[in-house]
C-alpha cells in the first residue's frame, strides 16, 4: 500500500521537475520498526521514487550505530535531509500533514542552494559565534 495517492504524486513530480542539485535523504529505523518508523521510511521511499535527483539511504539505528552517531541521531524515526553536506536539518518522528509540506520545501531549498531568507536575517546568522540548536515541537495535523 502506498501512503501518497496518485494525484499527490503527480503534483510532487511536477514540483520535483524544477529541482537543480541532488538531494539526499537519510532515514534511521530499526528491524522491529517503532511507532511511525514504517510510515516515515515509506514516505521517504515514495519521495525518492519521484525524482532521479533524490536519493535515499536507510540505516538501522541499532546495527548502524556508527552512522547514527556520526549524524548525531539519538532517537527514531529520524530523517536527515542534505545536499553535498549535512547542514543540520533533522526530522524526528513522522513528518505528516503540514510538516510533509516542510519536507518538500526543504528539498526545494537544498536543491536550489538558497535559504530564501532576507538579507537582514542572513547577516544576523552570519554573525553567530556560538552553536545554536533549535528544536521545534509539532504534532501530526
Amino acid at each position: 500500500m502506498t501512503l501518497l495517492n496518485e494525484s499527490i504524486k503527480d503534483e510532487i513530480s511536477k514540483r520535483f521537475a524544477e529541482l537543480e542539485d541532488p538531494v539526499r535523504l537519510v532515514n534511521f529505523t530499526q528491524t522491529i520498526e517503532c511507532d511511525y518508523c514504517t510510515e516515515t521510511r515509506q514516505i521517504m521511499e515514495e519521495l525518492a521514487g519521484l525524482s532521479d535527483l533524490i536519493s535515499l539511504d536507510v540505516f538501522n539505528f541499532i546495527e548502524d550505530k556508527d552512522k547514527a552517531q556520526s549524524y548525531g541521531v539519538d532517537k527514531i524515526p529520524a530523517t536527515v535531509i542534505m545536499g553535498k553536506k549535512d547542514v543540520g536539518i533533522r526530522f524526528y518522528g513522522i513528518p505528516s500533514g503540514y510538516e510533509f509540506v516542510t519536507i518538500l520545501e526543504d528539498i526545494d531549498m537544498i536543491s536550489r542552494g538558497d535559504s530564501g531568507l532576507s538579507k537582514a536575517t542572513q547577516e544576523k546568522l552570519a554573525a553567530l559565534a556560538n552553536p545554536l540548536h533549535l528544536q521545534v515541537f509539532v504534532t501530526p495535523t
Partner: peptide, 14 residues
Amino acid sequence: FAFESDMVTADMVE
C-alpha cells in the same frame, strides 16, 4: 536557519 548558518542545527520533533 540551519541551511544558512553552519552554527545552527534544527530539529523537528513530533
